[in-house]
Every structure is written in C-alpha cells, then in structure tokens.
C-alpha cells in the first residue's frame, strides 16, 4: 500500500508499491503523449525556435482542451492568437513536470525537493484533469459520485476502475499538497 506523502527532516517523502508506480508511470506517459506537439515538417525553424506556432488550433479532444484552455472566455479568435504565442511552451512546461515526476518513480521511496514536489503536484493534477474528463466529471455532484467509489473489489468495468484510479491519484495529490503547505509554513 502507498503511504501518504509527508513532510519531515528529509523533506517531502512518500512511498509507493511497484504496481502503483507502474500505474502512475503509465498514466503520466498517456498525458505526455497527449501533450506532445506534432512534429510538423516545413515549419519555420526560427518560429519553432522561439516557441511560435502559427499552425496551432484549439484542441478538439476535451481533455487536451482542459489542459490547454482558451485564455479569453467566449473569444476564440483572441484565444487562438494567444495559443500561437504560448501553447508550445505551455506544453513543454507540462511535459517537463510530468517527466520529472516519472523519473522519481524509479525508487520505492520518493524523496522530493521543493521543486520536485511542485513538479509532482502539477503532474498529478494534469493526470487527474485527464481522468476527470474521461469520467465525465462536470460538476461537484459528479465528483461526489466518483468519490464514493473506494472499494477495489467493486471494480467490474472500465468506468469503475477509472474512478478508483482517479480517487487514488486524488488521495496522493492531497497528501502531497498538505506536505507542501506544511513545508511552506515551516519556512515562513
């Protein structure tokens, strides 16, 4: 069984079983593959170098769109313009945090620096956002419904399995964030 993250003398530590680490690794890799920008041949190399992407479009996949949302409400045009300037580097930031978290999964015991913890919290959050889209969590009532699913022996279909996975990542992120808040508190 995983142990909740906690803040102590060594910093922020957590413990995951091999099966849990495999699960997280595959979830993280899924999100990375959703965020990986397509390699477009013929793209202006200078534009690519400075992170501009004139061919970018609003994502059609709802989960991707939740990860890379429009920046101006009800203004697709202004949002698209903003995407051209920022989306590539946003994707890279997210992928960077996800990769950093995946690297920490090589050992049973996870010991995190402040930066490491930040990357983990971002990575877990993105994983949860994607799972939530797949589970169709639209409002607090949906979230509550999913949250009630706690017993692994009830996992009889993909949906209930996903719900359990979602609840596991929620629990893990909550314990991590509590440890991070404690660590911030102690530095004040």
């Amino acid at each position: 069984m995983a142990k909740a993250f906690k803040y102590g003398l060594k910093g922020i530590t957590g413990f995951l079983e091999p099966a849990e680490r495999d699960l997280l690794r595959s979830l993280i890799n899924d999100v990375i593959s959703m965020l990986q920008p397509e390699d477009r041949t013929g793209q202006d190399p200078l534009a690519a170098l400075i992170g501009l992407d004139m061919d970018v479009a609003e994502p059609t996949d709802r989960a991707v769109k939740r990860l890379l949302p429009n920046v101006v409400k009800n203004d697709g045009e202004a949002s698209l313009e903003f995407r051209q300037l920022t989306e590539r580097s946003l994707r890279e930031t997210k992928i960077g945090a996800l990769r950093a978290a995946a690297l920490d999964l090589d050992k049973d015991e996870i010991v995190l620096t402040a930066d490491g913890a930040k990357h983990w919290s971002m990575a877990l959050n993105d994983v949860r956002l994607v799972l939530a889209e797949r589970l169709d969590i639209r409002d607090e009532a949906d979230a509550e419904h999913v949250h009630r699913m706690q017993d692994w022996s009830q996992a009889e279909d993909v949906e209930s399995y996903l719900a359990l996975v979602y609840n596991f990542t929620t629990w893990l992120q909550e314990s991590l964030v509590q440890a991070m808040l404690q660590s911030m508190e102690s530095r004040r």
Partner: peptide, 12 residues
Amino acid sequence: VAMHGFGLWATV
C-alpha cells in the same frame, strides 16, 4: 500561462 501550467482554469 503560469496558471494553465498548474492546471488551473484561468482567463484574462
């Protein structure tokens, strides 16, 4: 952009 990096839903 920073908020989107954290996964918060932000608009301007």
